[in-house]
Design a binder for these strands. Structure first.
Ligand code: FES
Ligand code: FES
Lengths: 144, 144
DNA sequence: TTAATAAAGGATAAATTTATCCGAATTAAA
DNA sequence: TTTAATTCGGATAAATTTATCCTTTATTAA
């Protein structure tokens, strides 16, 4: 569904959100350990999240990543997915035609756009804060 | 959503279905042209479809690929997707944890399984025949 | 001012997916 | 029986994604 990079990106963002709720700024090292992802690769992905103003980064000692309280609510998964995987999940054709186009649809078009709009709605309505709260109370996990 | 191989596989299967409705057996060459896919790669994918009894193949002159009338109804997209992409789309975790597991769910679990079951239902209820009929009357396309 | 810490960025490597090529096996028709 | 058409199967190559390494830059604290 999503690329590995995107999966790591979402997990990282949720972990940063959780820690920022406690006012803690976290390093790439800690993030990679806590979400069980390859550190250097995770660092690259965090750069993208930073460039897209999804998380904030601070260099130097005591530096690391954090996210503003307001962003926890306004940043939806759709923004992270778009920043990392682009919009192919939104504009792509389910059967691989150049782009999804209702004027010259592939045989799966009608059924596919239904599934896709379901996915899009989910991504556009799910905030980082929402995902972090389950973690906080120990109901959900970012690694096993 | 699906791999390139899977997209080609579905397009090929739908094209074979369409031609088999007219009693025509088709070659890899014709298929690749008609669905606009790389020929040799498409041949590999057709081998998989053949091994999985999704389409039938006949060697030699006048040979090619075809699909039985009954299979057009009984073969659903889910079977093709499973044959080519495996079942990761069904058992995988949306955030990349080892597997989807309701006992130790990732933060996205509840929302993800909803989207996924929507997708699964669509795949399990869509037959090759159904997809071929739109093509037949010129309402849908396998290439542009 | 210096040393240490952490993100940023560039280069490269490994793994996977996508794609091509070619010879072997099969089969129909000349 | 020979030839040609076609799928099958294995090897290999190209492209993309995933992952690592190392140097530079910024910043804090001693
Ligand atoms: S054209 Fe294929 S999904 Fe819309
Ligand atoms: S555990 Fe992640 S989707 Fe079910």
């Amino acid at each position: 569904m999503f690329s590995k990079a995107c999966e790591y990106g979402i997990r990282a963002a949720v972990y940063i959100t959780l820690q920022s709720l406690d006012g803690r700024r976290v390093s790439v090292n800690e993030i990679a350990e806590e979400i069980d992802s390859p550190m250097a690769f995770t660092a690259k992905i965090l750069q993208q999240l930073t460039k897209n103003n999804i998380v904030d980064s601070v260099k130097g000692p005591t530096g690391g990543f954090e996210i503003e309280r307001e962003a926890m609510d306004t940043v939806k998964l759709s923004k992270i997915v778009k920043a990392i995987d682009g919009d192919k999940i939104y504009v792509g054709c389910g059967l691989g035609l150049k782009e999804c186009n209702a004027d010259k649809p592939c045989p799966l078009h009608d059924k596919f756009i239904d599934v896709r709009s379901n996915l899009r709605t989910m991504l556009q309505s799910t905030s980082l804060y929402e995902l972090a709260t389950g973690l906080e109370v120990g109901l959900t996990y970012l690694k096993r």
